[in-house]
């Protein structure tokens, strides 16, 4: 059965549009059991939509999401008990105290009174907000509310934690706290899936990352493999005395995969893997001379992680 082997989540051919705006286009990926999966993409890329489909909040879509062998189309108590969810902005009824809110969520998740009570104390302690237990939710700061949100997500000890931009808006201290918590949960066997639009939020913590761009998964793999691309990536920056009317000559050079215009007289040549850099430089100089163009300088450029991310998300960048 799909999704019943080593993976916690299997997303197959997700397609979702809002009126005329397509958001997800045949999105497919798998999340292995255990470990931390960082789901990254620019704002509006469809991360929250993916998450809402995964946790059963959106029903109208094409494709399939399977969590531990069970389709999320049939949203039932057993499936709910496997998943903990933290939204981008935690929101609870403001008249409740933290304790009342968490008690309700615990009881609705099928936990006993005693277990809920003990678990609330344990989690609030762990998150450093035990003093806020009897404080009204409406009186909490954004960061504290996010911690309460995290507590409700972990309350029923789910096997999969789905977190939508969990560290956005947190102070540095709380970011570290959350990241340490994710590591601890992963060590204990929980699968942590979390989204972000900031690469630095996930690069030091995720075992696997998925880059979403233009409604599709553009990259999925380890952070190490992505870093390896940085080392292997070859880019040439070409400074011309005068700007080129068109870049066709450069694009036709053997070994060049793409040409990006940086400014009026600066261009980037992205090389195909395994291309001989010196040979391309040589051919580039000759081609420009043949057209009577004058070159001011040629430089080799190493792409950063951000450049790779930008490239995968199709929002610009060099590689």
């Amino acid at each position: 059965m799909v999704g019943d082997s080593g993976e916690m989540v299997a997303v197959r051919g997700l397609y979702k549009r809002y009126k005329d705006l397509p958001v997800l286009l045949n999105l497919s990926f798998e999340i292995p059991k255990g470990g931390i999966f960082g789901y990254i993409g620019p704002n509006g890329a469809g991360k929250t939509t993916t998450i809402k489909i995964m946790i059963g909040l959106i029903h109208d879509y094409q494709g399939e999401v399977i969590i531990e062998g069970r389709s999320t189309r049939k949203w039932d108590a057993q499936l709910c008990s496997k998943i903990g969810y933290l939204p981008q902005n935690t929101s609870m009824q403001e008249w409740r105290t933290v304790d009342q809110a968490l008690s309700t969520f615990g009881r609705l998740s099928g936990m006993s009174h005693t277990d809920t009570d003990l678990r609330i104390k344990e989690l609030l302690d762990q998150l450093g907000i035990i003093d806020f237990r009897h404080r009204k939710v409406g009186k909490l700061s954004g960061g504290t509310l996010q911690k309460v949100g995290m507590a409700q997500a972990m309350l029923h000890r789910p096997r999969l934690l789905v977190l939508d931009e969990p560290v956005a808006g947190l102070d540095p201290e709380s970011r570290v706290l959350f990241k340490n918590l994710f590591r601890q949960l992963a060590r204990e066997g929980t699968t942590v899936f979390f989204s972000s639009h900031i690469l630095s939020d996930i690069e030091d913590i995720a075992d696997t990352i998925g880059i979403l761009g233009q409604g599709r998964m553009r990259y999925i793999g380890s952070m190490e493999a992505l870093r390896d691309q940085v080392v292997r990536g070859q880019v040439i920056r070409l400074d011309m005395v005068q700007g080129l009317n068109d870049t066709t000559t450069l694009e036709r050079l053997p070994g060049v995969s793409r040409v990006n215009k940086i400014s009026d007289d600066q261009y980037q040549l992205v090389l195909q893997p395994q291309t001989d850099l010196d040979e391309v430089v040589d051919k580039c100089i000759r081609a420009m001379q043949a057209e009577g163009r004058r070159i001011r300088g040629i430089h080799q450029v190493r792409p950063s992680l951000e450049d790779l991310y930008m490239n995968y998300t199709d929002t610009g960048g060099m590689v």
Binding site: L57, A77, C80, S109, Q152
Partner: peptide, 15 residues
């Protein structure tokens, strides 16, 4: 409550 997405945290539970 709809506007503030309060229901999301309820609906991911078996209700």
């Amino acid at each position: 409550e709809r506007e503030r997405k309060v229901y999301d945290l309820f609906l991911v539970r078996p209700i």
